[in-house]
Design a protein around this nucleic acid. Structure first.
Length: 430
RNA sequence: UCCUCGAUAGCUCAAUGGUAGAGCAUCCGGCUGUUAACCGGAGGGUUGUAGGUUCGAGUCCUACUCGAGGAGCCA
């Protein structure tokens, strides 16, 4: 079994075999340097003409970038090598050639890189993003598990719109119409009544013709839902999770953040928690002050969101939006029914809304009234109404967009780099 | 759907309306420790498509195709 490159440093002076891909080849007259990557790290393999067998020396003359290799040699600590460790090559086998690999270490345009996304993933930067994505997904789930949350997977194929707002992908379900899920929330509410604290985590689909650096057609959302919880409980949980996540990444993903040239400085405030909680009314004031006027009652546009978030050095909660601009299931504020117990979490630096949620309507009659007001078919929501008929309870939850969160944490300029194979308005390949 | 910008070598980009170039990649040669290695040489083009203006179009005009960013909508 080959050793992983990340483990090599501990075996100085010993013989080791690694398997990986050629990142670059530098040739001198009597010495050749191969940088090899195996997913755990990269290492410089040194081939000296005087030390290596002739056939190995010759084999290294025209290796192509991304050729897959098996390299055997002696592990050596050497300050001249990047990372301080290198492999003095004794034997080398080319597992598969990679002539004319399309992606060179030089610059490429977006269109070209997206067409070659399957190969682009091999680059240092993309690999770093994918590692951080994995860490985020794991960390958040472990944290929720620690707090007694049960993961309950919600369906992807659904009979009707969850919120009745955004455009859905329609598909044929044995001569019946079905839609790709845009949220697992409604099903989560059923699960919360069974298990108290639940979350779902999976892909969601929006058939909107959005074409910006913040939009994906298919994206992943983590959606906790808590029985007997209030709006404040939800904000507490969001703040705890996000700040803990930032602390975790600053510690455990430091190397990858360096690769991404993301300064830890930008995340220090968020790591401390203490996210401001302002009302929609206050947010309107902030937007107006920043020269981005809003008509009361309307949801914020992207420029307003950016202006509001720019007033804070860490994510900010905006709560109690006008009832009219939010989904039908939002619980109205008992003290002021024209606003609802909803909350959006806006990330700093123009990354916009990364989470949205709030307290759900738990009263049967009110929910039924809202369905009618929104022209939603009661038949399709029969089961959802049932939840209010038997053992209803105040409950709340939120949905956290993984890609936007990742985009902010990594300081990326487009969400397309946060997901292995992005689905965009104009792109379904590869 | 709307607005703005773009499309030239495999890739990234140059080129007053007047002979289409460079860097990287590729191929050949050189170099004893390189760090996106370096040095020398070579090959590589129906300038997105279709029309138009002009003595002459990569360049100007029209339409279309594809892409990018933004608006709306949202996480």
């Amino acid at each position: 079994m080959a050793m992983r490159i990340s483990e090599l440093a501990a075996f100085s002076g010993q013989e080791a075999t690694i398997r990986g891909w050629l990142v670059s080849l530098r040739k001198g007259g009597k010495i050749r340097f191969l940088v090899v990557r195996d997913g755990s790290g990269t290492v410089q393999a040194v081939v000296r003409q005087e030390d290596a067998p002739t056939e190995v020396w010759e084999r290294c003359a025209d290796l192509s970038q991304e050729a897959s290799l098996e390299v055997r040699g002696t592990v050596r600590l050497d300050q001249r090598a990047q990372g301080g460790v290198e492999l003095a090559v004794r034997d080398l086998i080319v597992i598969s050639d990679a002539a004319d690999f399309p992606i060179s270490p030089k610059e490429h345009g977006v269109d070209f890189l997206m067409d070659n996304r399957h190969l682009w993933l091999r680059s240092r930067r993309q690999a770093a993003i994918l590692r951080i994505r994995s860490q985020i997904e794991l960390f958040l789930q472990v944290e929720l598990g620690r707090r007694g949350f049960v993961r309950v997977d919600s369906p992807i194929l659904t009979p009707s719109a969850c919120e009745g707002t955004t455009t859905l992908f329609e598909t044929d379900y044995f001569e019946q119409k079905a839609y790709l899920s845009q949220s697992g929330q409604l099903y989560n509410e059923a699960a919360a009544a069974a298990l108290g604290r639940v979350y779902c985590f999976g892909p969601t689909f929006r058939a909107e013709k959005s074409k910006t650096r913040r939009h994906l057609v298919e994206f992943w959302m983590l959606e906790p839902e808590i029985a007997f919880a209030s709006l404040d409980d939800v904000m507490d949980l969001e703040e705890d999770l996000i700040s803990a996540l930032v602390r975790h990444l600053l510690k455990e993903a430091a190397d990858d953040l360096v690769v991404l040239e993301r300064s830890p400085q930008a995340l220090l405030a968020a790591a401390q928690g203490g996210f401001a909680r302002i009302t929609y009314d206050q947010a309107v004031e902030v937007a107006v002050q920043a020269g981005q006027p809003v008509t009361w009652g309307e949801d914020f546009g992207s420029p307003q969101e950016t202006a509001i978030a720019a007033a804070f050095d860490r994510p900010v909660f905006v709560h109690r939006y006008p009832t009219a601009c939010k989904a039908f299931y939002m619980q109205p504020d008992p003290e002021r029914p024209e606003v609802c117990l909803s909350v959006d979490l806006l990330a700093p630096e123009g990354y916009g809304e990364i989470a949205g949620g709030g307290q759900r309507i738990h009263d049967f009659a009110l929910l039924r009234e809202r369905l009618a007001q929104h022209n939603l078919p009661e038949d399709a929501y029969r089961w959802y109404l049932d939840l209010r008929q038997w053992g209803s309870q105040p409950h709340a939850g939120f949905g956290l967009g993984i890609e936007r969160t990742l985009s902010w944490l990594c300081g990326l300029d487009h969400v397309r780099e946060t997901i292995p194979f992005p689905r965009l308005l104009t792109r379904l390949y590869p």
